[in-house]
């Protein structure tokens, strides 16, 4: 159980709240209070749009503890439209459908459960942008 650690990061995990640098305006995710570009103190909260694209991806067949029941699942590096590169699971998509550059959007899903008695950990994942998917199905 790491209740306190999860609780501290709820905002960023549930809805992609990061930070913006007051000096050079770099958008920061995950929040780290210091701008990675200009090293200024950066504590101003910033709500990311949740839109981005797949930078790279892989499929996890041998899952770490706590994630076994989800395997195989896909993990991607997602380039957010505001700049940062985020590691996250992909969801609502088949492996054959994913490609580098695929537009994705953030959804809040179950990341894992701390066994039957523990807490349920929710957080961001990414899925194909719904509009793109809808257009493909109508075509």
């Amino acid at each position: 159980m790491e209740v306190a650690r999860f609780w501290r990061t709820t905002e960023q995990r549930y809805r992609l709240v990061g930070e913006v640098c007051p000096r050079c305006h770099t958008k920061i995710f995950p929040p780290r209070d210091v701008c990675p570009a200009c090293e200024a103190e950066a504590k101003t909260l910033y709500q990311f749009s949740g839109k981005g694209e797949v930078y790279s991806f892989t499929t996890i067949h041998s899952a770490p503890r706590g994630f076994e029941k989800y395997a195989p699942y896909m993990v991607a590096l997602v380039r957010l439209e505001e700049g940062p590169l985020v590691t996250a699971q992909l969801t609502d998509v088949d492996e054959s459908e994913v490609y580098i550059g695929m537009p994705v959007e953030m959804v809040t899903r179950v990341l894992r459960e701390d066994d039957k008695r523990g807490m349920i950990v929710y957080g961001y994942k990414f899925r194909p942008v719904r509009q793109a998917e809808a257009e493909r199905q109508l075509a």
């Binding site: 029941k69 989800y70 959804v107 809040t108 899903r109 179950v110 990341l111 349920i120 929710y122 994942k125």
Partner: peptide, 9 residues
Amino acid sequence: PGLDEDVAT
């Protein structure tokens, strides 16, 4: 629902 979905999500 998918494996990562429940009433909250």
